[in-house]
Simulated scan of single mutants.
Amino acid sequence: MFKVKNFNDVKSFATEAKTKLVYGRNFTLVDTPGLFDSGRSLGAVNPELLRCIIECAPGPHIFLIILKVEKYTEQEEDVITKIRQYFSDDALKYAAVVFTHGDQLPEGMKIEQYAAQSEGLWELVQKCGGRCHVFDNRYWKNKKEEEYRSNTFQLAELLNTIDKIIMANRGGHYSNTVLKNIEREIQEEVKLLKLSSENMSEDEIRQQVKSIVLQKQSQNNFQFWKKVSVGVGLLAVLIFVRLYWKSNAVQVPLHTIESVREAGENALQQAAEHAIPNTFEAICNHLNALFEKIYNPFCPFE
């Protein structure tokens, strides 16, 4: 139901959600972009991360961690390390690892044996309660010679695993403060929309509300980081000026320092807005770059 996403295609880096009847039950699958792929900037990841959280609200019943059957390079090991680091143990109680490209699995080998070859990968599977499955959409669709290498067999196994996860968690879904706040906002918007849209179905209302909440949250995030950038940028310049004065051992009366400080702050504010926008923007960009190195955007469920 989903198109294969090309890493270089910016438009393909998007979250999608689709619902389908499978064996008598409705499943909604939220297909997220590759949040752990290297080369994605914070600006590209954050909007889709927000969309993912809104689509998942009030919380997912199951996390499916999708990986490929392949020889692991340092990059793949890094992805595994990030998943183990960013997903809390509580979230992994709701998770299963699903491998694609099952035709790459050596003959006679089961997916658990394959996963056990990598210490980091095996630790991830164990944190997911030992739950792992394998599919291959190219060769296993209609293959019936070997039951294990059949998507029909693997689908039944996955659905069985999903049932076990739901039972183990007493039918509940995963949630946290972020998801609860988003769901609360969605419910408030639903009440408002119902007052003015009597002819819309529940599903139509919720879909429209998700778009409204996404737009509001995106705007709030933009305003927040805009304020942070301005505040941190001015603070950095003031610190630099004070350190410069200190390093040059300038002896200035206290009242003069305060006057200069106040004048300096006003001048910096005006300069930031009018006189030297390029300089101020460069300072903010530099600070934001430092921020991106330490900030973890891949942790929506912490």
Rank of each mutant, 00 (worst) to 15 (best):
G43V: 11
S41I: 05
G43W: 11
S41Y: 14
A57L: 09
E70R: 15
E70G: 02
Y23F: 01
T81Y: 12
E74S: 13
E48V: 03
D37W: 11
F63E: 01
L50Y: 13
P47Y: 00
I53A: 08
V98A: 05
V22T: 01
I65T: 07
T28S: 06
V22E: 05
D89Q: 14
F36Y: 15
V69K: 00
D31Y: 00
S41Q: 14
D78W: 10
E70A: 09
F36H: 05
I66Y: 13
R40M: 13
I80D: 00
I53E: 01
D89M: 08
D90T: 13
V79D: 01
L21H: 09
L92V: 02
T81A: 15
Q85P: 01
V45R: 12
E70F: 04
D31T: 13
F27M: 06
V97C: 00
D37Y: 09
D37R: 09
K68P: 01
P58V: 09
K20N: 14
P60F: 05
G24E: 09
H61K: 06
L42E: 13
G24T: 00
V30L: 07
T81W: 10
Q75D: 12
A95V: 11
I83D: 02
V45P: 01
E55R: 08
R84Q: 12
R25W: 09
P33N: 06
S38Y: 03
K68I: 10
F27W: 06
A95T: 06
K82R: 14
A91E: 03
I65N: 01
P33M: 08
D31F: 06
P47W: 06
C52Q: 04
R40W: 07
R25Y: 13
